[in-house]
Design a protein around this nucleic acid. Structure first.
Length: 871
RNA sequence: CGGCUCGUGGUGGAAUGGCAGACACAGAAGACUUAAAAUCUUCUGGGGGAAACCCCGUGCGGGUUCGAGUCCCGCCGAGCCGACCA
């Protein structure tokens, strides 16, 4: 038994591959690394070629996790590598870098469990990721490799934080300016980086603050303990100052419309009015925001968020017990419960009333958890007839519902409408104002303007714009992140000087949470003590920080004197129009946060004159997810993970790359299939055998079928059609159809004998960005015998097609009757229209089809078709 | 509940508004081989026909158009995202 099984294993593993990729792939990879084959010089470097245009193609750099890469992760990297390689061949200076977004929770959690420093885990994972990527033959300029965890990198992350800290957004110039230009009394109140008390996720059981990612369904991911919100002093970034510019900037970007929409919705700009309601018998006012000031006459009650500070002040003594109970109930609900129970509206009356400024009516003030403290003013005027949520609430608590907007656009006012009738439905659209005093008869648009005018005149309201976007909570209670370059002294913060950077985390052995809301760095007593009176900030920055500007560092990643060299930044980041990275490829999971944060930082740096383009990423492409062979998302727990190592050992890196691109459109989600890999593997073997033949001894030698004679006219036409199709498809990133055409081009020559070597002079450079190892190898071998294979396939000039060769003398027209195909007709290219028509009419099938019928119309699309409309 | 994306053979997919199914996978038959693997050749949307060929067909129902897989409206289904945003 044992013997048999061993034999089988030996047989399987030593099975001869269809072409010797195991040998040549690793050989070329080693050589590319040794020679620094894809190092790309900067302006000022001795080998820099200023005459070439530039192209900056960027991947979203990975978080080097302990699990390593699976085949889904490398799809985007393969696509950018093909673009990088083909652009290089087309004469561009190509910047194609790779690095590591290596701060993050898993390394810290591992450190807490084992006591090993997170740096160890991180470095080990980086080494693994690097070798995985190198085993795919990606043409990165490894001399520019960066890690966000490296002090020489994060000193500049800290430096950029200081730029934010030391500047403010001037609403008049609509840009960031040095804080010294601020003339107000309290500069700390306008800095782009500021301190505020905001709620964080606090888990009493674990004695630690948790990241949002560590909280699942209101419970800690580890242990499943309850998590509550607790206010804590935090660093914030004033991204809301940029909401208009972040919104406006989107339209010019060559990004998927879906991503732009996500960002627009995330920013959530809405125009309306803020309205102040006087609370009856008190000095308090309730300010609300509404997008529908035209419905103010229909506001029959008000709602405050349960957490609203006014609640305690206005609640009457009779109602206070009920209000306190409700507040308690709400605060113990997790976010999930609060949204899950959204169908059932709850709330209590405060006992207070407010005055509707439009009609002077007294309306009751309620509290309810369907009003959120974090949006608008945390209070609303409720118009139940024209807002679904208010409608449901009013029905539940028997509050009056007054119609103030008529759906019927023909209604022009005049007809009396009975007020305060309970209605079956709620109308939230636009129409004509009714029951609304001076607004009656106006369209919703007119009424909005008229009401805002009235409110501003009365001094109890203003035209206002609100956004959903909140300021960015920028501090984390973690060890493994960038420390802040900030010192606290006598309760006040101040920045460190530039020469004091980088601020490096102290060496620690105990990474456990402190058990209080203090970050772990607080335990490093000596490090914290900056001087006798001053202490260091102990929070660290979130993982987003490093990824907000890494694309800039890649332009000049070894520079020690500046975050990026001015000349290098200008060269790589500017181009006609917007400028920025020419192509950025990554997953949709970063559609909002990373891309919005990076745009924000970039705009600040732009305002302060540190970068030359207003936007960081000119063109963005999202690759689709690759699913497991079972059509499910790849995951360890499902056991459907396919690793690059597995595919490479069986079929080679070129097959893996080619299959990833052949599966379907890049942006689309698609399932993995090993049978599909075999298909492209067979194709690569056919390309190999185009050039090579196995002799009696089992050695590969140049095929005796190859000859240096000219291809036939039809072979030449296929070759040039392939050049055109592959060139166009690469430009459109339609790699699957480019590969299909390369298969057509190859199949044309598979059985040709003699076989013109010109086929390989053209096909190998076209295939080289997709399957670089194979092409490099064959190019080298053919160069020993044939002319035209000088140098390397990866540096070969990109073939250009001759339109003359693609022109044909005869074209095939399709002949339709009433738009349906009936026959085909071959005619001379330049035959006159009437002659074409005459020939078409003469076809027996057409004769038959039109006999006894009248031809009403004739459509003739030159070079394409004839369509006869008959009856 | 809302938004976005997408529905094409047994499968992945192709098709500037103009021949639906390129290119592959799987399947069938054949060639080579002692045999297998590999390779090569042919067939492969459905129905009818001996064949030439004919009819039907891109989730469903309408519309625009000489002509719709493609554009517009409504529905059904799948996936992703956001969720009481005033």
């Amino acid at each position: 038994m044992g013997f048999l099984r061993d034999c089988t294993i030996i047989f399987m593993t030593s099975q001869r591959k269809q072409f010797p990729f195991p040998e040549f792939e690793s050989r070329w990879q080693a050589r590319w690394l040794e020679e620094g084959a894809f190092r790309c010089p900067n302006p000022g470097d001795p080998d820099f070629e200023a005459s070439k245009p530039k192209y900056y193609v960027l991947d979203m750099f990975p978080y080097p996790s302990g699990d390593g890469l699976h085949v889904g992760h490398v799809e985007g990297y393969t696509a950018t590598d093909i673009i990088a390689r083909s652009k290089r061949m087309q004469g561009f200076n190509v910047l194609h870098p790779m690095g590591w977004d290596a701060f993050g929770l898993p390394a810290e959690q591992y450190a807490i469990r084992t006591g090993r420093h997170p740096r160890e885990t991180t470095n080990r994972n980086i080494a693994n990721f690097r070798s995985q990527l190198q085993s795919l033959g990606f043409s990165y300029d490894w001399s520019r490799e960066i890690s966000t965890t490296h002090p020489e990198y994060f000193r500049w992350t800290q430096w950029i934080f200081l730029q934010l800290y030391n500047s403010w957004y001037n609403p008049d110039s609509r840009k960031a300016e040095p804080i010294s230009t601020y003339t107000g009394s309290d500069p700390d109140s306008v800095r782009l980086a500021y301190v505020a008390e905001v709620p964080v996720n606090w888990c009493p059981e674990l004695g630690t603050v948790l990241e949002n990612e560590e909280v699942v369904d209101g419970k800690s991911e580890v242990g499943g303990f309850a998590v509550e919100r607790r206010p804590l002093r935090q660093w914030m970034l004033r991204i809301t100052a940029y909401s208009d510019r972040l919104l406006e900037g989107l339209s010019a970007l060559d990004w998927p419309e879906g991503v732009k929409l996500l960002q627009r919705n995330w920013i959530g700009r809405s125009e309306g009015a803020s309205v102040r309601f006087q609370v009856s018998n008190s000095e308090f006012e309730i300010e609300v925001f509404t997008t529908r000031p035209d419905t103010l006459f229909g506001a029959t009650y008000m709602v405050l968020s349960p957490e609203h500070p006014l609640v305690a002040k206005i609640t009457t003594s009779q109602q206070s017990e009920e209000v306190l109970n409700y507040q308690k109930k709400v605060s113990s609900k997790s976010d999930l419960e609060r949204t899950e129970l959204s169908k059932e509206k709850t709330g209590v009356f405060t006992g207070a009333c407010a005055v509707n400024p439009a009609n002077g009516e007294k309306v009751p003030v309620w509290i309810a958890d369907y009003v959120l403290l974090s949006y608008g003013t945390g209070a609303i005027m409720a118009v139940p007839a024209h807002d679904e949520r208010d409608f449901e609430f009013a029905k539940a608590f028997g509050l009056p519902i007054r119609e103030v907007v008529r759906k019927d656009p023909a209604y022009t006012g005049g007809t009396p409408v009975p007020p305060d009738v309970p209605q079956a439905t709620c109308f939230s659209g636009e129409g004509v104002a009714v029951n609304s005093g001076f607004l009656d008869g106006m369209s919703t648009g007119e009424a909005k303007g008229a009401m805002i005018g009235f409110l501003e005149e009365q001094g109890c309201g203003l035209k206002t714009v609100t956004t959903k976007l909140r300021d960015w909570l920028f501090s984390r209670q973690r060890y493994w992140g960038e420390p802040f370059p900030i010192i606290w002294e006598e309760g006040r913060h101040r920045p460190l000087a530039e020469h004091e950077l980088p601020v490096i985390q102290p060496e620690m052995v105990d990474f456990k949470p402190t058990g209080t809301s203090e970050p772990p760095l607080a335990k490093a007593i000596e490090w914290v003590a900056y001087s006798e009176t001053a202490r260091r900030e102990t929070n660290t920055m979130p993982q987003w920080a490093g990824s907000c500007w890494y694309y800039l560092r890649f332009c000049d990643s070894r520079l020690e004197t500046r975050f990026v060299g001015e000349e290098a930044e200008k060269y790589w980041m500017s181009s006609e129009g917007l400028g920025g990275v020419d192509l950025y490829v990554g997953g949709t999971e970063h559609a909002v946060l990373h891309l919005l944060y990076a745009r924000f930082w970039h705009k600040v740096l732009f305002d302060l004159g540190h970068v030359s383009s207003p936007e960081p990423f000119r063109k963005l492409v999202n690759q689709g997810m690759i699913l497991g062979p079972d059509g499910q998302k790849m995951s360890k727990s499902r056991g459907n993970v396919v690793t690059p190592e597995h595919v490479i050992s069986e079929y080679g890196a070129d097959s893996l790359r080619l299959y990833e691109m052949f599966m379907g459109p890049l942006e689309q989600m698609k399932p993995w299939s090993m049978k599909g890999v075999e298909g492209v593997y067979r194709f690569l073997a056919r390309v190999w055998r185009l050039a090579m033949k196995e002799n009696q001894e089992g050695q590969w030698e140049i095929s005796p079928d190859l000859c240096d004679e000219a291809p036939t006219a039809s072979q030449l036409r296929v070759l040039h059609a392939t050049i055109k199709k592959v060139t166009d498809d690469f430009e459109a990133m339609a790699f699957n159809t480019a590969i299909a055409q390369l298969m057509v081009g190859t199949n044309e020559f598979v059985n040709a004998s003699p076989r013109p070597v010109e086929s390989l002079r053209i096909l190998l450079p076209l295939l080289s960005p997709l399957a670089p190892h194979l092409c490099e190898e064959l190019w080298g071998i053919l160069g020993t015998t044939f002319a035209g294979f000088e140098g390397h396939a990866s540096k070969a000039p990109w073939p250009t097609h001759d339109p003359g060769i693609l022109e044909v003398e005869e074209i095939e027209l399709i002949i339709q009757i009433n738009g349906k195909l009936k026959d085909k007709l071959r005619v001379g290219k330049s035959l006159a229209e009437n002659e074409v028509l005459a020939l078409a009419m003469a076809l027996p099938k057409i004769q038959e089809a039109v006999s006894g019928k009248t031809i009403h119309k004739t459509i003739l699309v030159p070079g394409k078709l004839v369509n006869l409309v008959v009856k």
